[in-house]
Design a protein around this nucleic acid. Structure first.
Length: 106
DNA sequence: AACCTGACTTCGG
DNA sequence: TCCGAAGCCAGGT
């Protein structure tokens, strides 16, 4: 297992995402200390989502959409977010201006 | 050790 | 607003 503080940071940040809000990979990466490692956020998520029970469904890309391919849990993810009060527009996009987590609890 | 892939981001047209 | 190309970083093969 990795002892990278970055990964630990990512996990911690995701755990802090409030309900009804979403965060982008880049935002998390920046909070974790590496704004260029958005991809690694993804990896950290994959590495510990199930293990840490992280709300990976609240993590979306910069476009405000869920990047998961349909059939891999996308339907579940969107359903969960909707249940939390997040609304999706016609294209399955989230209104980042309203639901993007500010990360003020840094 | 080298190459390839990836739940991304940002810029330009 | 949408599409395409380039850049970055780490893990897997």
């Amino acid at each position: 297992m990795t002892a990278d503080p970055f990964q630990q940071r990512v996990i911690a940040c995701i755990k802090r995402i409030p309900k009804g809000k979403v965060a982008t990979y880049g935002l998390i990466a920046a909070m974790a200390g590496n704004p260029r490692s958005a991809r690694q956020v993804v990896r950290a998520l994959h590495s510990s989502s199930a293990k840490e029970g992280l709300p990976w469904q609240r993590v979306v890309n910069a476009k405000g959409q869920v990047s998961l391919p349909a059939g891999s849990g996308l339907e579940e993810q969107t359903a969960l977010l909707k249940a939390e009060g997040v609304t999706f527009d016609r294209g399955g996009r989230i209104d980042l201006g309203t639901y993007l987590w500010g990360g003020s609890k840094k």
